[in-house]
Simulated assay, not measured.
Amino acid sequence: MSLGIMEEEDLAEYFRLQYGERLLQLLQKFPNIEEQSESPSIRLLEKKKEAKIMHHAMLQKKETFQRRMETLNLRWEELGIKEAQLKAHIQKFEQFIQENDQKRIRALKKANKERDLKRQRMRELAKAKQEMAALRLEHQRLSSKLQDYSIFNKYLEKVVENSEGSDLSPPMQFEEIHEVIARYKTLVSMHCDLMQSAQEGQEKIERAKARLARYMEEKDDEILQHNNELARLQMRFDRARSDVIIWESRWAHIQNTAAKKTLLLGTIKMATLNLFQIVSKQLKETTYVSLEDTHKQLDMIQQFIQDLSDIWAEVKKKDQQQIRF
């Protein structure tokens, strides 16, 4: 809080704190009145006098303090004004510094740009010098070449002179050098066309040869395949013919074996039929069995033999029992 706007209570509190102890010290310096005089009136007068002196001192202190406060307030206002002026001055100075920095930056940019432009101009100048030197060399080379080719110009002039005084056909007579050059270009073009036609014909021949070679190769492959197939079929035929001989011999062996088996089968059937007839006579029964049904005959023979075996076993058993008894 500013001292210039203090309230009265704050001011009184300030005086009490600042001068209370000093007043006590001053009062202690005065001699003890009770020791000097016992009169109450005298003490009252002295107290009033002391109070008046103290009040006067307090007023002086208060005035002094107010003057000092006014001086301080004025000083404070002056400092505020100076501070505002200083801030304005600092702001102007900062603005001045900023403007100087911007000017310096623009100047640096301009200097850099001019330096780059100068370097670019120097590079362009060096390049132009190099191109100029190259053009001079090219001019010297062309001049030397022109000097070397001057003999051809003289030769062409002689050709024109000779063609005018000769008995050649009109296409071979020339009045200017450019006609000779045009004729030469025409002949070169015709030669190129002929060479191209010959090359195309040669390429067609080569392609035809290549197609013929591929065709011959394909046919050779087909012939080789047919020969291989023919050889394979011949081998199969030879194997089949050898197999035929083998199978013919096997067939003859099978036929011989079959004849033997047939003969043996006939013998077995005859023996079986004889046994069947003997069994039939022994059984004294009429059986209706076909003469060709050998299996049925064998079954009956087996049954007859089984019956005989059973009878024999029974007879043998009875004989043994009789022997025991």
Score class of each variant (00 low, 15 high):
residue 254 I to P: 00
residue 232 R to L: 10
residue 286 T to C: 02
residue 283 L to S: 06
residue 272 T to L: 02
residue 297 Q to A: 00
residue 283 L to M: 12
residue 248 E to W: 00
residue 252 A to K: 13
residue 308 L to I: 05
residue 242 S to Q: 15
residue 249 S to I: 03
residue 292 E to Q: 11
residue 304 F to K: 02
residue 234 Q to D: 12
residue 281 K to P: 00
residue 252 A to Y: 06
residue 270 M to I: 10
residue 283 L to D: 08
residue 233 L to M: 07
residue 299 D to H: 08
residue 295 H to F: 04
residue 270 M to Q: 15
residue 257 T to H: 09
residue 260 K to T: 08
residue 276 F to Y: 10
residue 307 D to P: 03
residue 287 T to M: 12
residue 301 I to T: 04
residue 291 L to S: 13
residue 234 Q to R: 13
residue 295 H to E: 13
residue 229 E to A: 10
residue 303 Q to N: 13
residue 305 I to M: 09
residue 293 D to M: 01
residue 304 F to Q: 07
residue 306 Q to N: 14
residue 250 R to N: 13
residue 245 I to D: 12
residue 289 V to S: 03
residue 234 Q to G: 04
residue 282 Q to I: 14
residue 276 F to Q: 00
residue 259 A to K: 14
residue 285 E to R: 06
residue 281 K to A: 09
residue 289 V to N: 02
residue 228 N to P: 01
residue 300 M to V: 13
residue 241 R to N: 15
residue 261 K to Q: 15
residue 228 N to I: 07
residue 310 D to G: 06
residue 242 S to L: 11
residue 253 H to P: 01
residue 246 I to Y: 01
residue 250 R to E: 15
residue 293 D to P: 01
residue 260 K to S: 09
residue 269 K to A: 06
residue 291 L to G: 08
residue 238 D to P: 00
residue 268 I to G: 02
residue 253 H to F: 06
residue 249 S to F: 02
residue 233 L to C: 03
residue 287 T to Q: 06
residue 267 T to Q: 15
residue 233 L to V: 04
residue 258 A to L: 14
residue 256 N to G: 05
residue 305 I to F: 07
residue 278 I to F: 03
residue 273 L to W: 01
residue 256 N to A: 11
residue 246 I to C: 02
residue 299 D to W: 03
residue 302 Q to R: 12
residue 294 T to Y: 02
residue 269 K to P: 02
residue 261 K to R: 13
residue 235 M to I: 03
residue 243 D to V: 03
residue 288 Y to P: 00
residue 280 S to L: 03
residue 305 I to N: 06
residue 292 E to Y: 05
residue 277 Q to F: 04
residue 260 K to D: 07
residue 302 Q to H: 11
residue 303 Q to F: 09
residue 263 L to G: 08
residue 268 I to K: 10
residue 287 T to P: 01
residue 283 L to V: 03
residue 262 T to H: 03
residue 264 L to M: 12
residue 239 R to V: 00
residue 257 T to Q: 14
residue 309 S to V: 07
residue 266 G to D: 09
residue 294 T to H: 04
